[in-house]
Every structure is written in C-alpha cells, then in structure tokens.
C-alpha cells in the first residue's frame, strides 16, 4: 500500500490519495493519468497491466489499485 501511494504521489502530489473514494468519477484519474500510472506501476512492481484491467472497478480507490497489483503479482 505504501509503495502504491508513493507511485500515486509521483503522478500528482496534491491529491490525498488515501481519502478519495471515487478517483474515476471525480476525474482525478483521467485516461492520460491512467496511462502514466500503469507505466509507473508496471515498472515499480514488475507486472503487466493490460487494457482489460483498465475498468473503473480497479481504479476507483487506492485500495482497488493495491488489490489489482497484488492480484497481478500472484499470477
């Protein structure tokens, strides 16, 4: 989780990532940020996020993102 927040802060340090409940709906993560984020996550955790994984359910909160990352790490 901490590593996730670190990555997120690199994308945009002004957001309180742990508190936000709808990153997609509030448009904190638009498609550009998603691409940046996916790149950073891929590098940080050595995983491969695919276009299929980019659904709102996986990116709504920091916890969702952490869950996605840990799932992909297991594969």
């Amino acid at each position: 989780m901490e590593r996730i927040i670190k990555v997120l802060n690199e994308i945009n340090p002004t957001v309180n990532w742990e508190k936000e409940t709808d990153l997609i709906g509030n448009r904190i993560l638009d498609s550009l940020r998603i691409v940046q984020l996916v790149g950073a996550l891929n590098d940080e955790f050595d995983i491969e996020i695919t276009p299929m994984d980019v659904v709102p359910e996986n990116f709504r909160t920091a916890e969702d993102i952490a869950r996605l990352v840990s799932r992909l790490e297991d594969e």
């Binding site: 690199e10 994308i11 550009l32 691409v35 790149g39 891929n42 996020i49 980019v54």
Partner: peptide, 30 residues
Amino acid sequence: YPLSFSPAFMGLGRFTKKHFGEYAGSMVPA
C-alpha cells in the same frame, strides 16, 4: 490503452525517462 500499454510504447517511455527526465518519460506513451 492497448497502444499505450504495449511493450514498445512503455519501453519508449522508460527510454525517455532515462534520457529526458521523469516527466517527459511518463508523458511519452500517452
């Protein structure tokens, strides 16, 4: 998304990051 996440584009991003800085690198794939 498929293009941005493709190994080629992501790799290009890494390359740019190394040579032109963090910000440019994160922007290149998109």
